[in-house]
Design a protein around this nucleic acid. Sequence first.
DNA 1: TACCAGGAGAAAA
DNA 2: TTTTCTCATGGT
Length: 218
Amino acid sequence: MTLRPDADLQQLFFWLRDSYGHQPWWPAETRFEILVGAVLVQNTAWANVERAIAGLRQQALLSAQAIVQIDYAHLEKVIRPSGYFRIKAERLKALCRWFLSAGEFDSLAQLSTGELRESLLAVKGVGPETADAILLYAFDRPVFVIDAYTRRLLNRLGWLASTPDYDSLRAVFELTLPADATMFAQYHALIVEHAKALCRARPRCAECSLQKHCDTGR
DNA sequence: TACCAGGAGAAAA
DNA sequence: TTTTCTCATGGT
């Protein structure tokens, strides 16, 4: 058992939606930008990712061709604000090589969700969360993204019956809720918004860990 | 000064 | 198979 019997994921979604309203997610101007953002955001605050993406845009590097062609030193310099710049430069290039060799969005859209997920996971630097974020937000596939915020929220609600691995927790969401990519996208966005709202309310909220409603406790 | 942020892969146990 | 370590900047 992954979640406790009293866990109600649908009710939680409605509560979050009523509390925070519609979320304009993923914060990107193009689908390709979502791929880039998914790599740059790994273990990094989004504000720092925005700086890196702004730099890429300013230098006309927001295309797979440009990222593949640019030398590592230049790419590292541009994405430096997002941290882990050496690793992320390598991962970005790997993802862009995959994207181009696979035929870009038109060809990739022909694959089933399972095939596309497997293909993404085969790219060095793309793990489950990054792959699912790309599947959901760039390819509109009904895949639920499990991130640290999701685990934290479920933990604070006391809904975790165990410490499930990534795919087990993802399966619970996908089997419990209707397979609706729009809903999944909103749900994940709302979870992040909820966590950030709590942090804004109490920037240094170590005591939040004592409160059941709060998911910012560590 | 220390800690943390929308992970992933490699190395060690 | 599971756990630990490493990668790195910017904000608080």
